[in-house]
Write a protein that binds this DNA or RNA. Structure first.
Length: 426
DNA sequence: TCTGGGGTCCTAGGACCC
DNA sequence: TCTGGGGTCCTAGGACCC
């Protein structure tokens, strides 16, 4: 029996956000359910039943309202602290099945299964699925193959398979399956590449695999080349088992309603800046450059569209909230123009690096720097214990009239005591 | 009326150098 | 008025992912 070297499984949670909501609400099992993005804007997770009704991924909520009403579809605003917590439990369980794991996103992970015998792979995948379901309540699909791109395809097929596991290792079926995979369903082929490939008569994964190397080299970039190699079974994208720290940190939100006043923009930039600063402090990082951006709605074509951003290079790397907010507000003032109805504002910290990589700046005052660090620590500790924004600064505002819309929130948070279910003992 | 948020990587082109 | 060749580094913007 042949034994392949690379054996990669992609484990993907089915309708992840919907599945998380179902854990705490049994009445929505086997019913059409959707979860909306921030601000209740777009559909970002759908149960199988909702997919059957024709509700598409990423569609604006207002466009599917009719279907929702007619079919009694249950709606949820997204609840990221819940999904994040459930995700951690799923990943922790997965780690038991392979020490080499790459957490690829909130709901999927690649596993190295090289140590499993070829003939046992399908069974092993099945055990993984059953364990995840039993321990966390989350249904998954598993695709196993010799490259990441092929395991993505296997996973795609597994989603519609009754067993929920597909193994493409040592099978004669690969090409037969690739012929059924539409080109836009190949990992790494997005909107632009799809357009280009179809124009050149490439409509399926199989057709892409069969393109001559010379053509690929001439017509695509390194990405395109890698995808083709991977379809052929040559691994080009390795498993990243070590999680690198982020290089950028962005916090942005659309407003619940349009905003025109600078004071309100100031409040939201401050709020986002505080959140971003907390994030990088949590990772023990500092930033060297901040970018503030604002824009009006890109969808209202008849009205004036305005989008702008301003970078500020910081003289000294920092993760000090107060200093960062000060700079952010300067940047905002620079790009703010009166008379526009703003839809979104955000802040990006870039060129992040670990605290301590750079030596102390000659011009910074050691004493006040130490005091500030202690203050930041105290703020983070308090907010961690009593909820985000328990301690804030006055600029962030209290009323936050511009805040996001969240009309269908499930109010479940496995990481917050306030939302614990109450058990009454008679 | 109502259209998400947060990332990474690649590439072309400009600035600058000798 | 004519105006080389080759290299590096940085950045903005695009494409992709979930």
């Amino acid at each position: 029996m042949l034994c392949s070297k690379n054996k990669i499984a992609l484990v993907d949670c089915n309708s992840f956000y919907v599945s998380c909501e179902r854990l705490f609400n049994t009445s929505i099992i086997k019913k059409p359910v959707i979860v909306l993005s921030s601000n209740d804007g777009c559909v970002i997770s759908r149960s199988t039943e909702a997919k059957t009704l024709g509700i598409k991924m990423g569609e604006p909520y207002f466009k599917v309202k009719k279907i929702v009403k007619e079919n009694n579809v249950k709606i949820f605003s997204s609840n990221y602290s819940l999904y994040g917590d459930i995700s951690r439990r799923v990943m922790k369980t997965l780690k038991q099945f392979s020490p080499k794991i790459e957490i690829y996103s909130i709901d999927e992970a690649f596993l190295d299964l090289s140590s499993i015998k070829d003939k046992d792979l399908l069974e092993y995948g099945s055990i993984i699925r059953k364990t995840i379901l039993k321990w966390t309540g989350i249904p998954t699909s598993i695709g196993i193959a010799t490259t990441k791109t092929l395991s993505k395809i296997a996973n795609h097929v597994a989603k519609k398979d009754s067993l929920g596991v597909i193994n493409l290792i040592n099978t004669q079926q690969i090409d037969k399956i690739l012929k059924k995979i539409k080109i836009n369903d190949v990992w790494g082929v997005g909107r632009q590449l799809t357009k280009f490939y179809i124009k050149n008569g490439i409509n399926t994964a199989y057709q892409l695999k069969k393109m001559p190397d010379a053509w690929i080299k001439k017509n695509t970039n390194v990405f395109g080349g890698r995808t083709v190699m991977e379809l052929k079974g040559l691994s080009c994208i390795s498993l990243e088992t070590y999680q690198e720290k982020r290089k950028n940190c962005c916090v942005s939100r659309s407003f619940g309603r349009k905003v025109t006043k600078l004071e309100e923009l100031n409040e939201s930039v401050t709020t986002h800046c505080l959140n971003a600063a907390e994030k990088i402090r949590l990772d023990n990082q500092t930033t060297k450059k901040i970018t503030v951006f604002i824009r009006t709605s890109p969808f209202q074509k008849d009205k004036n569209y305005y989008v702008n951003s301003k970078d500020i290079d910081l003289p000294i790397r920092t993760n000090d909230s107060i200093e960062l907010v000060k700079q952010a507000l300067i940047a905002l003032k620079y790009i703010y123009k009166k008379g526009y109805k703003y839809q979104k504002v955000g802040i990006i910290f870039s060129a992040l690096s670990d605290v301590g990589i750079y030596k102390k700046n000659l011009f910074s005052l050691i004493n006040s720097e130490e005091k500030r660090k202690k203050l930041m620590k105290a703020i983070d500790y308090t907010n961690n214990k009593y909820g985000r924004n328990a301690l804030s600064i006055a600029h962030a505002g209290l009323k936050k009239k511009w805040n996001i819309k969240r009309q269908h929130y499930s109010k479940i948070d496995t990481a917050c005591f306030d939302f614990l279910p109450i058990v009454k003992i008679a």
